[in-house]
């Protein structure tokens, strides 16, 4: 078992307020890890540390060590743009750019200069759309606006957009919370397929979803990591009383 991402003693502060308390958690390569916990427990904040999306927030400060392939991502040897090329992200609300479907997917490859040739770019776009399970639905209208798709299709477009950059890790921040049950089940199937090629870390509010898609589960509460382990174990016989209370719906 190889770790894709290792974190040691991570603390996150918003101004004076501490949002994450000394968390150490490793993510296995080609596995799906679910981060669960009640609202405000810090799971999204922690996820956003992994591709340094918290950099955008001026008052946010991250301490500790987060490494990908033994490279500390908060040290200067790696540029944040390079990091995000390796660690893609899918957001809670589908956020396609107001551009064509094709340009949405080609956005990342163009920025990172993957290719100048039209036919190679077509290939990259088609492959990414296929992997995201969207190609068959949109292959005849790649010039339509990405925003004209349905919510579930938009989210798969965002996944295709992330895949097109050839990341190693994909972070998903409640990717189904804005979708209907059918679109949700399509995305969940997709996640299971994608873990063959990528390491996936998913934040979710739905415990059923965590149980369905993930191999590992980590339970967060009030900025602390309460318990982590195999999903089956966490959901059947957790060690910690709080975890048990949460998964049985007693709070959260």
């Amino acid at each position: 078992m190889v770790n894709a991402i290792t974190t040691e003693n991570v603390n996150v502060f918003y101004g004076d307020k501490q949002a994450i308390n000394n968390i150490s958690l490793n993510f296995l390569k080609n596995k799906v890890t679910a981060l669960i916990g009640p609202s405000g427990c810090g799971k999204s904040t922690f996820l956003r540390c992994l591709n340094r999306m918290n950099d955008v927030i001026e008052i946010c400060r991250v301490e500790g060590k987060i490494s990908i392939n033994d490279q500390d991502i908060y040290k200067d040897q790696i540029e944040v743009e390079q990091l995000r090329e390796k660690v893609g992200m899918v957001f809670q609300k589908p956020n396609p750019f107001p551009k064509s479907i094709y340009d949405n997917v080609a956005y990342g490859p163009r920025i990172h200069g993957f290719t100048d040739k039209k036919n190679e770019m077509d290939e990259i776009v088609a492959t990414a759309l296929k992997k995201a399970g969207l190609f068959e639905e949109v292959k005849d209208r790649l010039d339509d606006l990405g925003t004209s798709l349905s919510g579930g299709q938009q989210q798969r477009l965002c996944i295709a957009r992330a895949i097109a950059v050839k990341p190693e890790v994909i972070l998903m921040d409640e990717p189904c919370s804005a979708l209907d049950p059918i679109a949700t089940s399509i995305i969940e199937e997709l996640i299971t397929e994608l873990k063959e090629s990528y390491t996936i870390i998913i934040v979710t509010h739905s415990m059923q979803q965590a149980a369905r898609v993930s191999d590992k589960t980590a339970f967060f509460h009030l900025g602390n990591l309460i318990e982590e382990g195999d999903t089956t174990k966490i959901f059947t016989k957790p060690d910690n009383q709080k975890t048990n209370d949460y998964i049985t719906g007693r709070f959260g």
């Binding site: 999306m53 743009e81 995000r84 957001f91 609300k93 956020n95 750019f97 107001p98 920025i111």
Partner: peptide, 24 residues
């Protein structure tokens, strides 16, 4: 969310402004 989407793909600030924000 559009800015975040662009940053998350590894775009720099100026790329995000020129390619996403100004066109929008």
């Amino acid at each position: 969310s559009l800015r975040d989407g662009s940053y998350a793909l590894g775009a720099t600030k100026s790329e995000t402004i020129i390619k996403v924000i100004l066109p929008s």
